[in-house]
Nucleic acid binder design. Structure first.
Length: 883
RNA sequence: GGGAGCAUAGCUCAGCUGGUUCAGAGCAUCUGCCUUACAAGCAGAGGGUCGGGGGUUCGAACCCCUCUGCUCCCACCA
């Protein structure tokens, strides 16, 4: 068969992905004979498209899953999507707006119909994109957080937690997103430093014509909602005013002047206007001092009737207008520029407004405890472990979770209100009615008398159940899937959602299964551009992943991403990494072409072949052991780089060159068989990282049966290896490099064979390995002697170059046309360095305290260093005699 | 304001309990080579006072103190 000169990834990748799906290699069913290995995907937003973060994240998951599958485990990677309530609803609202439809014109049912339509049309694109990346998910198990079964699970959990007294409804100050018109949890708010103006405003004192108290505020638009002025009780400047009243400008209302330690006398004027409805601290002050609450804002951030003449205007417009009015009245003292932090919505990026409203909350205290303990004691391991500190800090200071959202796209809260406002929590209206009848004896009540709560639940209230709900662990807590696959093994996700999601899954795991949801959490970094900026759609600095795959192949992009991303570290992405990945594919392809192109002979194996093969066998065992150690510690980047170097520098550069027959010559069948076996092992080691090219070569290398795949081929098992063989060969390679280097500096063509002499106490070693030296260093002849003295005279003239290789002396005879003897200066320099080195070693060995305290093997090593150094010095001194 | 982490070659990072090849790897750079698998390549080479200062130790990239510079998390002084 003719092998393509160039590797064609596009064709190969679609061919094998289709083959894998057809043969259902990724599908998993509980199998009691096998150990389960389970990963649940962090469900991407159903409306999302693949970005670089997903690429990194899912590549890592695929590496872990594919390796586990090859290790003979029953690997199950469950894919799916998240309904992402705020993000999706915002997108649907925007789409409707483009069509001239306003959300408020629609009924809930109509809106949801549009939303579902949209989901069917655009949802799940991202899952198709994951297939291009090569992800080996069990697509038959694809779930969606709002599909009926998962919807039910959410409702069931809500009812259960309510009945346990963990869910309550309360009036609280929450983060309000005026653009999304919904409450947000604390975790959905991010803070940003901005330049603002600090306004100093005089409030007249009631009953006095010329006395004022001056407050400082960044939010003049909330003045109309002031219900108090507060000073520090120890502030001498204002002591006399405490208990009096101040007149709030614009609304001309008298409010009490109160005293509280909370106020910092150093900030601004030391007087604080208290606006309980619009600031969390003011709210708490108001509660303490029993101040009334006046809410000035509508849901969308415009002003309501309490703002008098500003009614209907936007809060930011009013922020500009109020100071003008104050100035006109002579009440604005001055304006300062300050920088302060404002909260923004994670989803809509609108400035968040603290707002008092009635919301549903989940108590976190009791649930947090097992979730904290089991991470701290390493039952659940975080990788890297540095995240444990962060995790603990959060879990020890956890607040109750605001779980209601004023949206339609999501699981509607299963709370039903009677006409008098009595609230009944039940999984549906029928159940609620039953409760009403049983509990309140209201037998005449009908379903129409009950109204369901309008709000839906926070998206994370469904995703925290994900590891359980994807196996229907709520619907049927004892089913075969959940019993087999749960707890899952590894979770791969971003540190940003450690609290949003990971911590809560752990809580749900202990609450509902009495068990951890996963054993390891691998935290990836953030993918950044060259300038260190986070890749984002708004910055436009993110490459299109599918175009990258087209350009560099999926394998190339996968390895490119992994080359530079140890766990927890940000990934400074550069396309050249993908180029490196693609080049690696080519390297493999060419190695395959070489091997596949050989003709076989029945000749006996040459000595070189035997040396190469036995060395390669030891090295393979060693590398597999090292890789397993890397994986055990989740050092995936290291594992890839280790494989890369092994394949490129050792398998290709040394091994294939050693066994490669002369051009046009056949290779011994026995050697060929070994080479193919070694290549096979290497492909299996590579497969988790580079699934496509490894499959392609694996299939082409030997004849395979239909239905066979490298996906199911065994991961190489580590076997004991002989370190001595490896070290011997390394010395041979070192010797070859020295000779090649000499050629380079002397401009001797590689084609010109060289005469070499060796003086060594272990001549046996050199005669054993001399076939390798002859082949790769291109020798014409080798003179072996046990000592320099017994070597022929020719080696000791200025016609030879001499160097020390550990305890051995190597001589290279200059070709007749080369006159250049050894360079005296270089030799002197080297001699000086060696003498200094020897001196430092001798000093150490002469130090009694070192000899007394250091471990024996450390001392032995110093001894060895001393001997090597002495040999080098002897050799250099000899060489200098001829210089 | 509270807490955590990081600083090693031009770039990205390893360096595990202080002592082997302790100063490393990949990429980039430089020098030769179109040598019949591969120029998307081959053979080589150069490059670092391990952020600064101090200490402990026979011995420090590693332990302690301190300074400087970055990053992240938490809390939000209006």
């Amino acid at each position: 068969m003719e092998i393509a000169k160039n590797y064609n990834p596009a064709e190969v990748e679609s061919k094998w992905y289709a083959y894998w799906l057809e043969n259902k290699f990724f599908h998993s069913e509980p199998n009691p004979d096998k150990e389960a290995y389970t990963v649940v995907i962090p469900p991407p937003n159903v409306t999302g498209v693949l970005h670089m973060g997903h690429m990194l994240n899912n590549t890592i998951q695929d590496v872990l899953v594919r390796r586990a599958r090859m290790q003979g485990k029953e690997a199950c990677w469950v894919p799916g999507t998240d309904h992402a309530s705020i993000a999706t609803e915002a997108k649907v609202v925007a789409m409707l707006q483009e069509q001239g439809i306003e959300k408020k014109e629609l009924s809930r049912e109509e809106f949801l119909a549009h939303a579902w339509n949209w989901k069917e049309k655009y949802g799940g694109i991202i899952l198709e994109q994951l297939k291009k990346l090569g992800c080996s998910c069990d697509w038959d198990r694809t779930r969606f957080t709002m599909e009926p079964d998962l919807y039910e699970a959410v409702v069931e959990v809500f009812v259960d937690l309510y009945n346990k007294g963990l869910i309550y409804r309360g009036i609280r100050m929450v983060n309000w997103d005026p653009a999304g018109r919904t409450a947000l949890s604390d975790e959905e708010v991010y803070h940003k430093e901005v330049q603002s103006k600090l306004y100093y405003v005089r409030y007249p004192i009631e009953g006095s014509s010329d006395e004022y108290i001056t407050i400082a505020t960044t939010r003049p638009e909330t003045i109309m909602a002031d219900t108090g002025v507060c000073v520090n009780p120890n502030d001498e400047r204002y002591k006399h005013l405490i208990g009096k009243k101040a007149i709030v400008p614009i609304v001309n209302k008298a409010v009490p002047i109160i005293a509280d330690e909370y106020v910092d006398p150093e900030f601004g004027t030391g007087c604080l206007k208290v606006t309980p409805a619009h600031d969390i601290n003011d709210y708490n002050l108001g509660l303490k001092h029993k101040l009334p609450v006046i809410d000035l804002f509508n849901e969308d951030g415009t002003m309501n009737e309490y703002s008098v003449k500003y009614e209907g205007m936007d809060r930011f417009a009013v922020r500009k207008l109020v100071p003008l009015e104050l100035e006109a009245q002579g009440l604005l003292v001055k304006v300062e520029e300050i920088s302060n932090k404002i909260g923004l919505s994670e989803r809509t990026h609108a400035v968040v407004e603290p707002r008092i409203s009635q919301q549903w909350f989940l108590k976190m205290g009791d649930m947090a405890k097992p979730a904290l303990d089991n991470v701290m004691n390493d039952h659940i391991r975080l990788h890297p472990a540095k995240f444990k500190n962060m995790y603990r800090h959060w879990m020890e200071n956890v607040h109750d979770w605001c779980i209601s959202r004023q949206l339609w796209w999501g699981q509607q809260i299963p709370a039903f209100y009677m006409l008098d406002g009595t609230c009944i929590v039940a999984k549906n209206k029928k159940a609620a009615l039953r409760i009403a009848r049983d509990k309140y004896q209201l037998f005449a009540l009908s379903e129409t008398d009950l109204t369901q709560d309008d709000d839906v639940l926070d998206t994370w209230f469904s995703s925290w159940l994900w590891p359980i709900s994807v196996f229907d662990g709520f619907k049927d807590p004892n089913n075969a899937d959940i019993n087999y696959y749960y707890p899952t093994n590894d979770l791969v996700t971003a540190p940003e959602i450690l609290f949003f999601w990971v911590a809560r899954m752990i809580m749900a795991g202990y609450e509902y299964r009495g068990e951890l949801p996963f054993k390891n959490v691998y935290l990836t970094g953030i993918v950044r551009d060259k300038q260190g900026r986070k890749m984002s759609k708004s910055l436009g600095n993110s490459p299109n992943p599918l175009e990258l795959i087209e350009k560099y192949s999926a394998d190339g992009v996968r390895t490119g991403m992994l080359f530079s991303s140890p766990a927890g570290n940000d990934l400074p992405f550069d396309e050249s990494l993908c180029l490196q990945g693609r080049n690696f594919c080519n390297k493999l392809w060419n190695a395959f072409r070489l091997v596949k192109g050989w003709e076989l002979s029945q000749d006996a194996q040459s000595e070189v072949d035997k040396l190469a093969i036995s060395w390669m066998e030891e090295r393979l065992n060693q590398v597999v052991a090292e890789l397993d150690a890397d994986f055990a510690e989740f050092r995936i980047s290291d594992a890839l780089l280790r494989t890369y170097k092994f394949v490129w520098d050792e398998f290709c550069a040394w091994y294939l060159e050693l066994v490669k027959p002369e051009f046009g010559q056949p290779i011994s069948a026995a050697t060929f068989q070994s080479v193919v076996a070694h290549f096979d092992a290497i492909l299996r080691m590579l497969h988790p990282f580079m699934p496509f090219i490894s499959e392609e070569i694996w299939q082409e290398m030997e004849s395979r049966n239909e239905g066979e795949s490298i996906c199911l081929a065994p991961w190489p098992t580590p076997a004991p290896f002989n370190n001595a063989t490896i070290e011997e060969m390394n010395l041979v390679f070192e010797c070859i490099s020295q000779i090649r280097n000499f050629r380079n500096t002397q401009q001797i063509s590689p084609k010109e064979a060289l005469q070499v002499g060796v003086a060594s106490a272990s001549t046996a070693f050199f005669s054993r390995y001399q076939p390798a030296l002859f082949k790769l260093a291109n020798l014409a002849g080798l003179d072996l002697a046990s000592q320099v003295d017994t070597l022929p005279e020719v080696w000791k003239t200025n016609k030879s170059h001499r160097f020390a290789l550990k305890q051995h002396e190597v001589f290279i005879l200059l070709p007749a046309d080369k006159q250049a003897g050894p360079d005296k200066d270089t030799l002197l320099q080297e001699l000086e360095y060696q003498k200094g080195f020897l001196e430092s070693v001798m000093k150490k060995l002469g130090n009694e305290r070192f000899v007394a305290n250091a471990k024996p093997d450390v001392i032995a090593n110093e001894q060895r260093k001393k001997e090597d150094s002495e040999a080098k010095i002897r050799s250099l001194e000899e060489a200098l005699k001829n210089a």
